[in-house]
Design a protein around this nucleic acid. Sequence first.
RNA 1: GGGCGAGUAGCUCAGUUGGUUAGAGCGCCUGCCUUACACGCAGGAUGUCGGGGGUUCGAGUCCCUCCUCGCCCACCA
Length: 925
Amino acid sequence: MSTTQELHELPAQYNPGQTERAIYERWIEAGIFSADEKRSRRNGGDREPFVIIMPPPNVTAALHMGHGLNNAVQDVIVRWRRMIGDETLWQPGTDHAGIATQNIIEKELAREGKTKFDLGREAFVERTEAFVEETGGEILRQLRAIGCSADWNRTAYTLSPELSAAVREAFVQLHERGLIYRGHRVIHWCPRCMTALSDEEAQHGEEMGNLYHIAYPIVGAKDNAALTVATTRPETMLGDVALAVHPNDERYNKLIGKSVVLPIANIQIPIVADEYVDPEFGTGVVKITPAHDPNDFEVGLRHRLPMPVIMAPNGTMENGVDAADRVPPQLIGIDRFEARERIIRSLEKSKLLVKVVPHQHAVRHCYRCDTVVEPRLSDQWFVKMQPLAKPALEAVRDGTIRILPERWEAVYINWLENIRDWNISRQLWWGHRIPVWYCDKCDRQIVSRTDVAACDKCGGSVRQDEDVLDTWFSSWLFPISTLGWPDKSSAALAAFYPTDDLITAPEILFFWVSRMIMAGYAFMDAAPFHTVYLHGTVRDTNHVKMSKSLGNGIDPLDVVEKYGADALRYTVIAGMGMGADLVLDHRDLERSFAPGRNFATKLWNIGRFLLVNVGTTPVRSVDELTDSELTLTDNWILARLNATIVEADMALGTARPDKGKWRPEERFSGLRLSEYAEAARRFVWDDVADWYLETTKGRIGTPGNDSEVARAVLTHVFDYALRILHPIMPFITETLWQRLPSPLAANRCEFLAIAPWPIPHPASSDERDAVSRFDLVRQAVSAVRKIRSDYAIPPGKSMDVVIQSRLNAPLFSEHAPLVGRLSRSTVNVGGEPAGAGAAHSVLSDGSEVIVPLGGLVDLTKECGKLQTELKQLEGQLASLSKRLQNEGFTSRAPAAVVEAERKKEEEWTKRREQLSEKVKALCGG
RNA sequence: GGGCGAGUAGCUCAGUUGGUUAGAGCGCCUGCCUUACACGCAGGAUGUCGGGGGUUCGAGUCCCUCCUCGCCCACCA
C-alpha cells in the first residue's frame, strides 16, 4: 500500500464519527470484552480476575453526563486491567426502578385521561413490561457510543426471572433468619406515589414554615383556661389523642391526668406526662398524634393511647382506622394543605389560635417526585439491619474494603453505626411481589420461594401480599445475583466473586453501596468488592447539578457526535480530581471539551507525521538497537517514556489488596485518574511532539542507519504512548496503533485493546545522563528562541549564535546543528561573537548563549534588559545568602538541603559576576 | 443541631510526608499559515495560596481563630 493511499485513510482532520463505530464493531466481533470463567485463576485458569459491577441505570433512563462520567471512569479502569492481562469482567445491567418507572407509565395514562386503577394491576404491569421491552435498555446501547467495554452478553435486569429468583431467595433466607419482619408503625408515606418509602427515600429539605400556637381548653377549668400547643402541622390535630408535658415541668405537672377539649373535633383527650417533651421548645406542651408522627407513635405506645388515622393515602382528610368522626364533614376529601388553611381560619374564628410564628424546619420530600412526605401508621415489611451492618462496618474499619476518597469512610461508618430498620415494602404494582401468602381460612402466613396455591395447613385459598419490594432490595444483590447466586455452584460466581472496584456517586452510598456490602456478607459471607470509588457530580458553571429538567444538561451523545468519544472521555478523566466535582459549560461545548478534542487532534497529527515520514515499512525493534546507535535524543525520550510509565503506574496504584486487606500505605493512594491522564498528556505533547519528533525530522530525512534508528525509536515511543493512553482514549489510539509500522513480530496483538501494558525497565546510565544532557540542549534552544522573541527578530531572519561552555563544550558542539535547526539560527560553539553588543543567556550549567545583535536590533534596549536581569539576580542572591547565614537553617535543616542551597549560591554568584561583566562590556560600565 | 469538605492565576482545578524562583488546562497578550497539527507553533503576562494569629531555620502544606461557600446526617413538636 502506498503512502498516499494511507494518507487518504488518515485525513488532515480527525473525524471520530467515521472511525469509532467501526472499531467498536471489531472489538465486539473479536469478543475481547467477553469474560471467560475458565480463565479466572479461581477456576483453575491462569489469569487474575478483575471485576467491576456497573451501577445499573434505570431501565428507562437516557444517557446523561452523570452516566458518561461514571462509565468513563469504569471503562478506564477495566481497560487498564485488561491490558495488564487480568481476566476482566465488566458486568452491565439495568434496574427496573420501581417508583420511577411506574411514575412514567402513570403519567402516560394521565395524558390519556386514565389512572392505573382503570387498567387494573395485571394490565398495568403488562403495559409497563411492554414499555420497558420497547424503550428499555436504550442507555446500555448509548454506553457503547462512548466506548464502554462491558461484557454485553451478560447484561442483567433486576426484574429478569434469574434475578427475581435471587430476590425471593434473599427475602426467604432473611425471613428464616429472623431478619425480616412485619411491623406496624409510622413510616414515611408519599401521598402522590401512594406508597411507603424508606428513610433514605424521604429526603430532608430545610423550609420556612409556621409554628402555630393553638389553645386546647382545659376541661372543668375556670376562666376558660387552656393549654397552648405549638405545631407545624395543625391539620394533624384531628388525630390528637392526648397532650403531653414533661413530668418535671412545674408549669404543667399539676394538670397531668386532667383532660382538654380537642378543638374542631370536639372530643376530650387526656394530658399525659412524657420525658420526650422538651420544656424549652415551643410552649412545652406537645399534641400527641400517634398515627401521623413517629415520636407521637412511641408516646402513644407508652401510654396505650388509641391511634386514629385521619388522612387518606392520597393525602386528603378522612376518618380512617379508629378515627370515628373526628374529621368534620366539611373537611373530608380536602387536601391536607388546604385543610391546614381551613383549620387555622376556623381556630382563628373561635379565638383558639394564639399566634403564628415563622419557623424554619426540615421537611421530608419524596426522592422521586418531591412531594412532601406524610408520616403514616401502617403495616410494612422491614429488614432488621443491625446484625447485617456489623460485618459491613468491620470490613471498612479493618481495611478489607476501602472507600475513596478517604473522607467518605467516616460518613459510611457513621451511617452504619446509627442504622435503622429498612422498610422494604412498597404499595406499588411495578416490582417484585413480596413472596408472602395469607390463608383466607386460617389466617396463616406463608413465606415461600415458590408460588403458593393453597394453604399448606388447612388447604384454604391463599392470596399473595399486594405489595412489592423496594427497588433497592433487588439492586443490593446485584454483585451476587448477576453472577448466578443463589446457585452456589455457578461458574461465574466462583470465578468472579468477590469483585474488585465499585465506582459510583456518593448519592447512593447508603441506598446501594452499603447495602451491597451487607448483602455480600449476609449471603456470600464475603465483601462484594475491596474498593469503593466515589466520584464527583457533573455541574454547570454556576455549580448547579446538571439535569435534563433544569435544562442545564449536556447530552454525551452530542459531544460524541461533535468531538468524538475520546474527547469526551479525556476531558472528563483529566478534568476531575479524586472525588471532586466536574464543572462543564452546557452553553459552550466547544470550550468545555477543548482539552479532549485538542489532544485527540494532536495524537492524530503525530500519527500522520509517522505515516508520512516514517512510512509503513516495518521498523527495527528497539531491543535490537545498540547503545552506540542510540543518540542523545533517543536515550532522552526512552528515559522519559520510562518515567511516564512509572508515573502512570503510580497514579493508578495497586489494583487489589494484598492478602485481602489494604496496607495503610496503599489504602488511599491509587485510582488518581487525572494524574495518570496528565502524565500521559505531558509525555505525548510536551516531550514527544514538541521535542523528540522535531529532532527526528533531520535524521529520518537522511537515508542511512541513523534514519532507521530514529524511525524505530519514534515508532516505539508512540506505540507505547498509545498503550498508556488507550484506556482513556480507546478509539483514536486503536485506530493509530493499527497503522503503526511496528517491528514484525510473530505474536503481535491484533488489537491495542488487548496489547500488553508497558512495563518500565531499569534505566541505563546512558538514559539517565540523557535527561540532564538533553535538558541543556533544550535550554540552549529556548534561550535563542527567547532572544529572538525579546528583540522581535523575525522568524525568517537568520541569526548567528555562539555558545560558550566550559563544562559541556563537546555536548554543544555535537548538537550545534540540532540547536540551530530548532531555533532557526546558525550555531557555533566556542570563539568570540562577532561585532559589538550581544544578547546573553546563561544556562544552568554556566554555559552561555550569545547572540550578536549588531545590525539586528537597537543595543540600548539590550543594555536595559541586562541591567534588569542583574538587578533581579542580585535580589534573589541576597535572600539566598541571608538564609545561608542564618545559623538555625544551617544547623537544623537536612544537610542535603543546605548543600543544595550552597551550591546554588555559588552558581548564582558566578552568574552575577558574568552578568555584571557583560553589562560593563555592552553598556560601557 | 451534629459531622465533613472546599476557598491557590480571569475560569476550572493540581500541589504527595513542611524544603529550589507555587504548577496545568482553558482564556488573555505578542509574533508566526516553519512541508504532522492555526483544534497549531514560539514567546509572554497574571497569584499579599480566603483574613488574622501561632509553631518552625523555613508554611500553600502543621496548629488556633474568624469569614465565605458547598455537601452529608438529624424524630425537637
